[in-house]
Design a protein around this nucleic acid. Structure first.
Lengths: 373, 373
DNA sequence: GGGATTCGTGCACACGTGTGCATTACCTGT
DNA sequence: ACAGGTAATGCACACGTGTGCACGAATCCC
């Protein structure tokens, strides 16, 4: 029903090929003919059919984004970064939520394959190898963001969780804490392992042994899971004096639990989060956390896919896989303090400037690593 | 490069038409031929090209979703509802964020038109009439969600904000409050007006006059805007005893401001939100708010578009426009109490059951209105 | 001024899929 | 055995766009 180039051709008494070329600014067409054609195209309200074009060019001008849950504010911000870059480059986004359900994943892969997306960005922890293979089978560049066994994919961009967790832990150590515990989220794959690793590395360096009951995992990443996880630690005979939480949402649940239990934060107990989601600045007290450059991560992921699109499969055999690792920064707010009956060691490393939201977009501390695979 | 039906045709020694029919389960094809074809299709890893198909059928199997900001947790939940229904019906989603920027809106409309989306859902307050016209020009069903001058569109689905705001206000009146103020968000169009209307209606009914300085608007809907808005009220010579906030995010900022000012909530000051976003249950104290069935709203919007797709333009002249209005429910938590030095009037209408997150998806209190336009 | 070159345009085919119509083979009834 | 019918398949065109090639006309060179 919409206007086609044939309609324009009739109107201007030329062939449809001439119209096609004119609209593409081909130098073959006479200046005034082209102008006339462009004019009537505008008048008729013409816009090209992406379907027809992608049939010929094998380019759909669309990227697929797979996320585990739209609701998660962490992914929302990454999505935002992706969206900005894609839109600026004239790409549209196919979005789908896997809900960590393999069946849905399968359906999503199918749908995106059918729509012949030019590239895919995966922000889902639980993405199965089988689905990935189907994508690769038809030769689409894939970039994974965080939360993934990066080694399985050729291109990935992620945040240096080990480093972040070390900074968080060191901050607590510097304050004088000795009995520090870790609360993980078993459903987020490698991410929780990396953060645990950073935690343990720093405890090792400080010469401290972490008893096994000071490491606990829950099966989700929401506030309610944090609430549940806290109970484990409160029931211990030797309670920790500080708790490093896998992410901000868990920490928010923990804060609520502590308040219900009548335990003062940070005077009696210190808590840290991870990610710096918007609301972490508005808890009571405001949450000490690690600021991941979420938007920037998303933007980088989008840039990487687009880059891969423009460098055709010049990948013969000695393929280079690219992994970009971004660093964030520690954000000291008010849920951490010296432990009860102890003396301070060192001052807070970074005081948060201005509005308590953290920066939204910064390339500081970015590192790119290229390695053979 | 991917496998086509022609490849399958060669492999099975039939024509491509036969393959096409076999894969569609046409009764014209012999049982065993069809089976053989389906088998080899599976072996070759065939999946149809959406581009080619939509070229013939004029169906792209994709819906466009336009949102003002991905970051807003309110939209995230609506998006979730849309996504679920769309996925279940085999539709993919084109997602784009307008950022309230007319230029971007234009680009989005263009991109979605080119991709020939089958339908559009708009969840953006500031969507210009011009863009809408371009959509209508090529005959795409449009459904708008909330936040919009619903009268401009034929199909819309929204939440009964007036009712919600009345319930919130009545709750405060029942507790004994008399000096109640309203904090709005000037950038969210009709929504803030509806909520203000509900507030004023209920105050009128109670025979109370609201002084103009007790109605204040800020230009955004984030926590930082709430913080700024609170200052206006604290500076008044006659302070209100309760504040009705446009949404939860403003309320969260207000809570922080009150805490900084050393004012006790709810003993010295009551605060209410609106929307029941996830984090409203985890503020300190937990926020009294109005629970919009966000997910359900999204799902209903998706259902409505799909429904419109399946009823071809049987719209001659006496067009029926459809407006579905959903109702939410009051969620009394702990930021509201009797005003200082006053006596109670009535008990809380609804006590929240179970986990303090509110329900996620319910059709209770749903009403559908159909009217001539 | 005639052949070679450039410029502007149209013809025809291709991309992958769907479908009306024609064609063939086989079966049924008399 | 032959007409008529049904079942199964292929042919050819269409959807809207892009592009190699050919063709005609104008221009240029010597």
């Amino acid at each position: 029903m919409p206007v086609t180039i044939k309609d324009i051709a009739k109107q201007t008494d030329v062939s449809h090929s001439t119209v096609s070329r004119a609209l593409h600014g081909s130098p073959l067409i006479a200046k005034n003919t082209a102008e006339r054609i462009r004019q009537t195209a505008l008048e008729l309200g013409y816009f090209p059919s992406a379907a027809a074009r992608s049939l010929k060019t094998n380019r759909s001008q669309a990227l697929g984004v797979i996320v585990s849950s739209v609701e998660d504010p962490f992914f929302s911000e990454i999505l935002q970064g992706i969206e900005e870059v894609a839109q600026k480059s004239g790409y549209s986004l196919f979005m789908a939520a896997s809900q960590r359900d393999p069946e849905r994943e399968q359906a999503i892969v199918q749908a995106m394959s059918e729509h012949r997306v030019d590239g895919v960005i995966i922000c889902s922890a639980s993405f199965k190898a089988e689905q990935r293979r189907q994508f690769l089978a038809y030769g689409v560049p894939i970039v994974v963001v965080n939360n993934q066994a990066a080694e399985d994919y050729r291109y990935s961009i992620y945040h240096d969780d080990v480093d972040g967790s070390r900074q968080i832990t060191r901050h607590l150590l510097d304050l004088g804490h000795r009995r520090i515990a870790y609360l993980g989220n078993s459903s987020s794959g490698r991410t929780t392992l990396d953060r645990l690793t950073g935690f343990q590395q720093e405890m090792d360096t400080a010469g401290l042994v972490v008893p096994p009951e000071h490491i606990h995992e829950v099966s989700g990443g929401g506030p309610e899971d944090g609430l549940a996880g806290l109970e484990h630690f409160l029931a211990l005979s030797v309670r920790p004096s500080a708790l490093v939480c896998f992410n901000d949402m868990l920490a928010i649940g923990v804060l609520k639990g502590l308040q219900q239990a009548g335990i003062q934060v940070p005077n009696e107990f210190s808590v840290t989060g991870f990610d710096n989601i918007v609301f972490s600045a508005f808890t009571n007290p405001p949450l000490t956390t690690f600021d991941q450059p979420k938007r920037f991560i998303g933007a980088e992921a989008a840039r990487l896919v687009l880059e891969l699109l423009n460098t055709p499969p010049a990948e013969d055999s000695s393929v280079q896989s690219q992994v970009r690792m971004l660093k964030g920064r520690l954000l000291v707010r008010e849920t951490t303090a010296l432990p009860a009956a102890s003396s301070p060691r060192a001052p807070s490393p970074v005081l948060e400037p201005g509005l308590p939201r953290g920066n939204r977009d910064y390339p500081a501390g970015t590192g790119t690593t290229t390695r053979k695979s």
